[in-house]
Amino acid sequence: MAKSKPRIKVPKKAAKGDVITLKTLISHKMESGQRKDKKGEKIPRQIINKFTCEFNGATVFSCDIEPAVSANPYLQFTAKIEESGEFQFTWTADNGDVFKKSQKITVA
């Protein structure tokens, strides 16, 4: 498949103190390192191993991902909103590739 592309779902507005749900999905094969090719040789591991969610520069949530997470990894979590600002989402792959996506949220 082509280059990994992140998808996110973040509300655009929230009230101060709201706990909002964030949903993310990135296209990635998540090659586990456990599979063998047709010649019987192990296909090297190539996965997204780290995900972080920052809000205005501070880490809200992160995870360490292992090969048992499914292809096209989906992550859902929450964040407490105290002020307007910007979410920054970062996915890091074994080969050093980094994928980023951001979205602003306004506190009404």
């Binding site: 498949m1 592309k5 949903k23 999905l25 296209s27």
Partner: peptide
């Protein structure tokens, strides 16, 4: 957003 088929839609 959960439906991985949307990767191809996009």
């Amino acid at each position: 957003i959960q439906n991985p088929g949307f990767i191809w839609v996009e």
